[in-house]
Design a protein around this nucleic acid. Structure first.
Lengths: 358, 358
DNA sequence: CTCTGGCACTCCCCCTGCGAGAGTGCCAGA
DNA sequence: TCTGGCACTCTCGCAGGGGGAGTGCCAGAG
């Protein structure tokens, strides 16, 4: 039995499917537990409450529904939501307005990290959930250029432009003193020498160079290498950016009415490492992903669901974009929303790459 | 009468001052309304509850105390807090640990905007309140250099380094196509030509240049000017940075126990314009500033208090750093905390400036 | 004149009990 | 196989009743 329904989800007869569908939808809309009477009144069934009760009892036995307490209606379990999403849900088409907002905002921004920050807040606004955007470490991506700018005599700002338009910058303090002219030369040298390499490769090659004989004598080369290593080395702490936007949206949700739950949830959203961990595991798979409650440690503890999607070119996935919210959320609307935004970002990134190719 | 107490705050006899002091302190500690009985038990007074009641009634008449309802104890009014802060409070010295944390973190960061972001979160952690750091528009500050870096053919990243080490960068899209070499020349030209000017001046001079005859014929100059204007013009939206950190801290405060108040407060903290407005008005005055409840529109509506301080060199104040919390907060601890952090930031900034001077 | 104890009064808060409402499970009959 | 009926359970909201904390006022003592 268990096997049958894990394989196909078709172990439910059409009527039970209808009932589950209706309960999930009504519960998503109202947030209340749904009783047999309410269900009968919706008009989709030519059955009495009593008959529906039987069906509902069956669904409860199968693990798709649960009762908050005796003599309350039913609400979907994680499994119920999962079945709904896999077999019952009809994604609602994205509204024209939503699509316009996304196209407009994504189209107009320039630097990619700026786009990503924007994306998380667009997502949060359109979904009225918490929006997250994650960009993993850059170490595995090719760089296009590296420039060094004088901030103070021994403080240099390094600007690394990735092959896909990502811009990272940071200020480093150095042992050596540099002039503007020297920095220009170094920028040109490093860019021509290492353009197209991944940061990882750049670092390894630089380190190897320190051991070569020439570097021992040529002071300029020494300075160049030292600066380059500084720049690449410490990129690590800046590497994965995680934007979490719109935490205030959970204040509206009835499931977080009491302050204790609210508190817990806010704190959970601050644990960026946990969020990164879970998004990183999702990164390996293509297409829209939905995680419900008990389907992962993090979401289980906090009764979250996550709807997320990978973005970036197919050849080089860049990161994840998605929303976090209570298990009871409008999946039929969230799914196309996240999907569309993910596609928009990917398109934008590919355009940028082509632009550079010319 | 009113005049007397506005002038000196000394219209209170010593005993009334003692009582007010004790009530404010106890209320800050417990959050409860303080009754005559509780007060008598604290041991600081050789009086019966009945006598204290008389004193308290007087303080209420003068507007320093209020009763949430008949037959409740008293809590301080805004005026009461104000009197407490101006005449009664003894600032508690900052703990060694707190000082170490601040020195350590401020000392180790490099780019100033990075320091500021850090500062707001340090402040929030040490105070268990909401930490805010505000850096107003850069238009009035002198620039040290401007550099342009190729991101894509018609996409240029502009890096503006302020005289006080602030680094702003942004990507602009241009009509013209630039090569790396051209950009290097332009960077050198603009930096030598405009280094030391404020952004405002730079912009005005660039605009004037477009009208000069030479610019009509020299295409390179045209490109330079156009790029310069683009870079300076759009700095405006990026200009004032406001970091608001630790909003979750208000979840612990009993005054925000019910969800409605919590909701309102969270939304209030998102209205960055309002916050900027109020911090901007504070910018003109030196030294620690404390705003309590009704003393400004914003704090009145939300029953906030703000403890803030200007930072930056005395010659060129840079911005505000402070905390926002309920009116009932440990002013005696918050005041030195904010003050010390403000000084630490100022010191750091002055050091950076001197470093550049050499 | 100041301080104090006593007293009546007020108001909040918590606990309790009760009834209404919603929903269930089960059973017998169509 | 479906349906109506019935007894049962559980939540929720509301009213009522102490208990407690605190007040204001007053009269009397120092």
């Amino acid at each position: 039995m268990a096997v049958r329904h894990e394989l196909s989800g078709l172990d439910l007869d059409p009527r039970a499917r209808e009932v589950l569908h209706e309960i999930v939808m009504q519960h998503i809309a109202s947030g209340e537990a749904i009783g047999s009477r309410t269900l009968a009144k919706c008009g989709r069934f030519d059955l009495s409450p009593a008959s529906l009760r039987n069906v509902m009892a069956d669904l409860e036995d199968l693990g798709y529904l649960q009762q908050p307490h005796t003599s309350a209606g039913r609400i979907p379990t994680d499994l119920g939501y999962r079945f709904f999403i896999d077999h019952l849900m009809k994604s609602r088409a994205l509204s024209v307005r939503d699509r316009e907002v996304i196209d407009d905002q994504v189209g107009h921004a320039n630097a990619i990290d700026q786009v990503l920050h924007l994306a998380s807040s667009i997502l949060s606004k359109l979904s009225d959930q918490v929006g997250v955007v994650f960009m993993p470490t850059l170490l595995q991506f090719a760089i296009r250029s590296m420039d060094f700018i004088l901030v103070a005599e021994n403080k240099i700002m390094c600007v690394i432009v990735g092959a896909n338009g990502v811009v990272v910058n940071k200020v480093v303090e150095t042992r050596f003193v540099f002039s503007r002219d020297e920095l220009e030369k170094i920028s040109r040298y490093i860019t021509s020498e290492f353009g197209g390499c991944t940061l990882d490769v750049v670092r390894r090659r630089l380190i190897r160079m320190t051991e070569q004989e020439r570097a021992q004598h040529d002071q300029m080369l020494q300075k160049t290498i030292s600066l380059g290593i500084e720049a690449v080395n410490d990129v690590a702490p800046f590497d994965h950016e995680l934007y979490v936007e719109g935490a205030a949206s959970i204040l509206n949700k009835p499931e977080y009415a009491d302050t204790a739950a609210l508190r817990k949830t806010f704190l959970a959203l601050q644990e960026k490492e946990k969020l990164i961990e879970i998004l990183e595991t999702c990164l390996s798979e293509e297409g829209l992903q939905i995680l419900i409650g008990s389907e992962s440690d993090f979401t289980q503890i906090h009764n979250f669901s996550i709807v997320a999607r990978r973005y970036g070119s197919t050849a080089a996935p860049l990161g994840m974009v998605g929303i976090i919210g209570p298990m009871r959320m409008e999946y039929a609307r969230m799914a196309p929303l996240v999907d569309y935004l993910g596609r928009a970002l990917s398109r934008k990134i590919e355009e940028d790459e082509q632009e550079q190719g010319t």
